[in-house]
């Protein structure tokens, strides 16, 4: 078939313009982003998603709220053939599982990578840290006096039916197992968390709900529970809003540092816009906005954050000094086993 001159010229033009068209197309589309629900969603939308859409009018971000990282992984696995999530933010230990299953795409070529702290990168896990946080004890300061200083406070019989703990597979419950194991002298968690599990089964009568909805923070501010476990960032924001109904503590035995990994889903349809979004979410502007709004420690070394906000994040020297050395990749290996033991020995116990 012979092409007449005009279409041929048009074809040539298209060929020459292709790189630009592709570039332009990368700036357009709708991407689905899976991350935590509740207060995290509210603040992440306001601080990151909406400013991003304003800066990139061609891209629409659909925020798909997820109850826990484990649920996100479940969705990724079930949709391996035709993923509908383009980018996800979830716990690094869960991201490790997703990486091993071949569900995630490498994003180390994004321009923003060179601005990030070295601790944002975890070897053997695709994606890169999007938030830093730490595990905390939550309590109602007007009802729990004196303020608790040890994880063992949860075992005090005076708190019968007064404690809210989110059970595994949620990472809050996994972390509680590690802390219980540590507090009660269970030794190296890599070998066994048996002591922790046995001890938690003992305190089951103290627990009001293993599935506090909307979240453990609200259980305390609403007066349903007196103590709970959760994350520093969310605790800080609820604490500020509650007018003294909730306080955050790091017990003497120490606590855990937690990383949420920002990841690109392999085989998803909107990889272009998703990369643009991830690049923005890790950039200085978004990191500053989110930290100052919700007190997650930034992953971007160049983000200029007010001392006041930074003082409430996990990244303060005194908090960092209390963090235990926990290998989240090791946790990735044992977390399914921990969840199963919880279902068997703890949750059905009364």
């Amino acid at each position: 078939m012979r092409l007449s001159p005009l279409p041929r010229r048009a074809l040539l033009g298209t060929a020459l313009a292709t790189p630009f068209i592709q570039r332009a197309r990368a700036e357009e589309g709708t991407l689905t982003f899976g991350a935590y629900s509740g207060i995290f969603e509210d603040n992440y939308r306001a601080a990151v998603v909406e400013p991003f859409m304003k800066a990139n009018p061609g891209i629409k971000v659909v925020y798909y709220p997820m109850g826990s990282s484990a649920q996100t992984l479940g969705v990724l696995r079930a949709q391996k053939a035709a993923p509908q999530l383009d980018a996800v933010l979830f716990d690094v230990s869960v991201a490790k599982g997703a990486t091993d299953d071949g569900l995630l795409e490498d994003i180390s070529d994004l321009p923003v990578m060179k601005e990030l702290f070295p601790s944002a990168f975890t070897k053997g896990v695709s994606g890169v840290a999007g938030t830093f946080d730490n595990y905390v004890m939550l309590y109602a300061p007007d009802k729990v006096k004196p303020a608790p200083t040890s994880w063992k406070a949860f075992w005090d019989p005076q708190f019968k039916d007064q404690i809210a703990i989110t059970a595994p597979p949620d990472i809050v419950g996994i972390s509680f197992t590690l802390m219980a194991n540590k507090a009660w002298g269970g030794g190296d968690y890599r070998k066994s968390v048996e002591t922790g599990l046995a001890k938690i089964a003992e305190m089951a009568p103290n627990v009001l709900s293993w599935n506090p909805t909307p979240d453990p923070y609200t259980f305390i501010t609403q007066g349903q529970a007196k103590m709970a476990v959760g994350w520093n960032a969310r605790g800080q924001i609820y604490s500020a809003a509650s007018g003294g109904k909730l306080a955050v503590a790091i017990p003497s035995e120490g606590s855990l540092f937690q990383i949420n990994n920002m990841c690109l889903v392999k085989g998803a349809k909107n990889t272009g816009p998703a990369k643009t979004f991830i690049n923005y979410a890790l950039g200085t502007e978004a990191q500053k906005a989110f930290t100052e709004r919700m007190f997650y420690a930034p992953v971007n070394a160049k983000a200029q954050i007010s001392a006041e906000a930074l003082g409430r994040t996990a990244a303060t020297p005194e908090r960092m000094a209390n963090m235990l050395d926990v290998d989240w990749l090791e946790i990735a290996r044992i977390r399914d086993g921990i969840s199963e033991q919880w279902r068997r020995r703890i949750l059905t116990k009364r």
């Binding site: 629900s37 509740g38 709220p65 909805t213 909307p214 979240d215």
Partner: peptide, 9 residues
Amino acid sequence: FRYVESRTD
């Protein structure tokens, strides 16, 4: 269902 699981308002 998902809403009630993550928020109670």
